[in-house]
Amino acid sequence: MTDHILEAHDLENHEALIPPSNWFERSETLQKLRKNKKFPTIWCAGCGLGVVMGALIRAIDHLGLKNDDVALVAGIGCTARMPVYMDFNTLHTTHGRALAFATGLKIARPGMKVIAIMGDGDALAIGGNHFIHAARRNIGITALVVNNSIYGMTGGQYSPTTPLGKVATTAPYGNVEPPFPICELAMAAGATYVARSTVYHALELDKFLTEAIAQDGFSVVEAVSYCHTTYGRLNRLGTAADMMRALKDNSIAKSAYDKLSPDEQHANTKIVRGVLHQNNTRMEYTRMYEQQILTRVQSV
């Protein structure tokens, strides 16, 4: 059974987190969805966001975290609607500011697992400043960035991750701005765990999210997804299934990428999936504040 799942996800054994065979019945997964929330979600049929939500729930489940000990903080956009469907402490904030709200929450509740869920525009355009500063501080928040290369909710405007030349409603002649590499930006700014996968490779997302949430510091998982409704239609990329398949065909595991020659690496245009960076030597921000300030200052 495991082999079958791995084959379907195009993953090696070490690349995936395999749920137990009875995970659906045994786990608290279902209890992590809100019973009193009316489904379905607001997402278009075929959207990759449901896969990301499933991966997030399985990751939290795998870590054995209590619902009370997890907070999901989101900004604005399709991705940012995710928390309302899950039974945690959920804070749906203003556009771009999820990490700033999450910073206050983490400082007030250092023991809480705080996960900021953002789209590419939310995290890197309007929220870009908060993204790099949260990384610089190494505050214990997991930033889950779902990258679909477009502003979906507003109808397909180009975002900071839209590739050069691609069409958007605000780039009708092709985008002339180069995209931000999300993971490289996070690494440069000081994040201590950085990984990337795609919504095709769901079990790999499970694994990376599990590691990211467990990381004692600022962690980033880029989940590459797609928007067939806007980006796909504007750029004639086919159906949701076609775009999902393209993520399989146009991505490469980091282990395979590392074996390429420098020239081949330079020529590579595929999405590199894997844990791109991990640093366990830097102290997490709230811990640093506790040790360097609170325990040193004479209390009144």
């Binding site: 904030t93 500011r97 400082i107």
Partner: peptide, 8 residues
């Protein structure tokens, strides 16, 4: 944003 998060 942070002070709202703090009070939450």
């Amino acid at each position: 944003a942070a002070i709202i998060g703090g009070r939450v």
